[in-house]
Design a protein around this nucleic acid. Structure first.
Lengths: 83, 83
DNA sequence: CTGTATTTGTTCGTATGTATT
DNA sequence: AAATACATACGAACAAATACA
């Protein structure tokens, strides 16, 4: 898995991260009801600030792909929820 | 012992706390094998958030001065471990 | 064996300041 | 000016392991 983050291009870092996770969801690598990586693990995995990781999660929420439960995590929605 | 925390300067609070504890270690006030103050006690003593106390401990770990045992505490390493 | 207290682990929420683009 | 990104800091909730009475 490349999962390279580019800061020199036109695509915001948070969108790039969200896209990676969205791809995981759509490919079934993270199934409905299961948690996506925590903000902290995104920070570690992608080497970004937590602020950026949060934006990525927000982006996924905006697309209806996930739902966050405070202090628990962010979970993949049922497949039909993102339509 | 002053141990004043300054929030108006350029030195992060967590670094200031770590420096205080590092000084205690280097002065022999906390000996190898013994525990440094818990996160909770740092919160109380310095009036900071736990997040900040944890950063201070992390900073000490990064310097090789201490080692954390989960659910037990954080302990001073042997003197030669920090070289 | 059974609680209770202590301690670190983990997670998201919120805010501020700075720098860069 | 506005959006993006990083770093710092405080809050809050709950989990889990450990230690001990």
């Amino acid at each position: 898995m490349s999962r390279t983050i580019r800061t020199d291009g036109p695509i915001p870092v948070y969108v790039q991260i969200a896209d990676y996770i969205a791809a995981d969801i759509k490919a079934g690598r993270i199934k409905p009801g299961y948690a996506i990586p925590s903000e902290t693990s995104m920070v570690q995995e992608f080497g970004v600030a937590r602020d950026t990781a949060r934006r990525a999660v927000q982006h996924l929420r905006d697309q209806g792909l996930v739902r966050t439960i405070p202090h628990r995590g962010t979970f993949v929605e049922p497949v039909d929820a993102a339509e």
